[in-house]
Design a protein around this nucleic acid. Structure first.
Lengths: 342, 342
DNA sequence: CTGAAAGCGCTTACAG
DNA sequence: CTGAAAGCGCTTACAG
């Protein structure tokens, strides 16, 4: 961060004013072609790099966007982040990442640092704690400083801002229907991600479908670090559960592993559908049928919305996108029309 | 980014000078307790947030570190990034992420933006293209601007800077030995990540081990999007390959899937060891034995090294850490001492 | 204990 | 076509 050449230095070397150098470098038509050329050559020669801090201090925007997500390890967030980064670099923006680790405390700190770091806007997916307690006091600085905010995936209704997510309840409902249509008689919902808006919505959709179908409901919450193998086994053997909608990718994989280890066959004895089309869904044996959450697309759309908002291309009122999704049918579910050969 | 209250405004409101406000807010002992209190109260009331841009322009450092990685989707990088972020926030630094997408072009652009964004230092894992061509011209600005650099995982010998990685060749050698000791007679190396330093090193280690063992060598390069099922099948059936060291997690999983689909049993007919202890290794059936790359630890160490360098806590000469790693034995390899019951 | 002043590296009306 | 000057929001010697 040292001895970088500045406009002043360049000006001295060229015997012209700082203004002239600045304008020349910025291709101002005010400056004569020769001067422009001279200035640029010397700048290149000296590896001149403008000091963005100084530029931003004048222009009042930084072209950087803060991103706060609960984690990066789950495939959904890694992929969303990838989408955000791709779009940002395409649009000439930079991103600063903070991880809330599902905690309000850390989320609050991140908001603080990003705001004083003068980001032009904030893209967030809320922490589990924030969602569970629906506590949003720590987001207050965002509003009082009028920093544009777009929420994606894990949103909260009471927050007024731009939003992008999928219609989780509808998708869960459809996934449950798909399970039914493929021949499942008793379908359960397994969740390893309790207390998030997406879990609530998915459960709601599941319950709705079961109600419409006139079936019985069964919701199981569990800790991903300690899967209830016995419970699942009993559910399949005595309660005749033959279809499971899982709250997310990892939960679905855990359900399948457990069932397989107990000697059941998938999809014959048990059909499974998960959420998020991650790498495990594709490679597990059998491969997992899943509701595609379009993580990358959500990320891209969130970033695009942010930029449009910043650049004033959006109407006054907030926009809310609910992405269309679809079910990717793979080997963990039976074909819709049961085939003789399979 | 609008109407934020500034020191000037606060000073006007309090009828004191800007200097006084600044000092009071920074807990300077020069200022009387009462004034300090008054100033702080008003600042809080007005949600005053210092403008980091202006602060940094004075102090010449930003407490932000640029990170350029080839991708975020592979588990290794997501985890390393997690380590970097965790450590950074622990140490009071922020990180700006750029993804090179394995391309020199994008890597060069990222270097440019990060440097003019005045990061205090740069942490990088090189793109495949950079490594394949050993082209480092686009990194020149880093050196000419004397920006501290730490390379992790995918490093290049000819670059002089701090480095953190694992001893890939040694690990590969040991993994090959482990395969041999567990009873494998003919071991092959399968790589889906050609042209990176880590691949080279791992292959080197494999070849070394095979040489020492007096066995025959077999190296297979493949495109992860198009796994050579037939080839693998033939290798197992006619060439009697019974052990495979894979270059990375995905490659290992692809090898296992293909073998399983061809009707072979793992680890009975074929033992497999991969690199990177990702989520798939743990959940695949059978679970994958793997060389733990300690991604998170590499990330943390890289960041720590960076901060130590920035803060002048390191000796003049560059440091190079080669992390100790270990093999996690799971179900894709046989027990070292073959058991009767298994 | 408080304040006036210079300066960080830029941009941009405004003169000439 | 070129330059002097003000200002972005801070910090920090230096006076008083």
């Amino acid at each position: 961060m040292d001895q970088r050449v500045t406009l002043k230095e360049l000006a001295r070397l060229l015997n012209v004013s700082i203004s002239t150098v600045s304008k020349a470098l910025n291709d101002s038509p005010e400056i004569s072609p020769q001067t422009r050329k001279r200035v640029k050559e010397l700048a290149a020669l000296n590896h001149y790099v403008p000091n963005m801090l100084a530029q931003n201090l004048k222009t009042k925007h930084t072209r950087t966007i803060g991103v706060i997500i609960p984690a990066i390890l789950p495939h959904f967030f890694a992929e969303a982040l990838h989408g955000i980064e791709t779009k940002a670099s395409e649009l000439g923006y930079r991103i600063i990442i903070c991880i809330s680790n599902e905690s309000i405390q850390k989320e609050a700190e991140s908001v603080q640092t990003l705001i004083k770091g003068q980001v032009d806007g904030l893209i967030m997916s809320l922490s589990q704690e924030t969602q569970a307690k629906t506590e949003i006091g720590h987001l207050q600085p965002i509003f009082s400083h009028k920093v544009p905010l777009v929420l994606f995936d894990r949103v909260l209704n009471q927050i007024e801002c731009d939003k992008v997510h999928i219609n989780d309840s509808l998708q869960a409902e459809q996934a449950t229907m798909a399970l039914f249509n493929s021949g499942c008689k008793k379908i359960a919902y397994f969740s390893g991600i309790s207390d998030t808006s997406v879990d609530d919505e998915r459960k709601k959709g599941y319950l709705e479908a079961v109600k419409n179908l006139g079936g019985s409901r069964k919701v199981v919450k569990f800790d991903p670090r300690d899967f209830p193998d016995e419970k699942l086994k009993k559910l399949i053997e005595t309660r005749k559960i033959d279809g499971i909608l899982a709250s997310d990718e990892l939960s679905a994989i855990l359900v399948m592993k457990s069932a397989l280890n107990s000697g059941f066959e998938i999809p014959e004895d048990l059909s499974v559908i998960g959420f998020t089309n991650g790498i495990m869904s594709e490679h597990f044996r059998p491969s997992l049928s899943t509701v595609d959450q379009h993580a990358e697309q959500q990320g891209k759309l969130a970033l695009e919305t942010m930029v449009d908002r910043i650049e004033g291309k959006l109407p006054e009122e907030y926009v809310e996108y609910k992405l269309e999704t679809s079910i990717i049918h793979r080997k963990s579910t039976r074909g819709k029309v049961p085939q003789l050969t399979d």
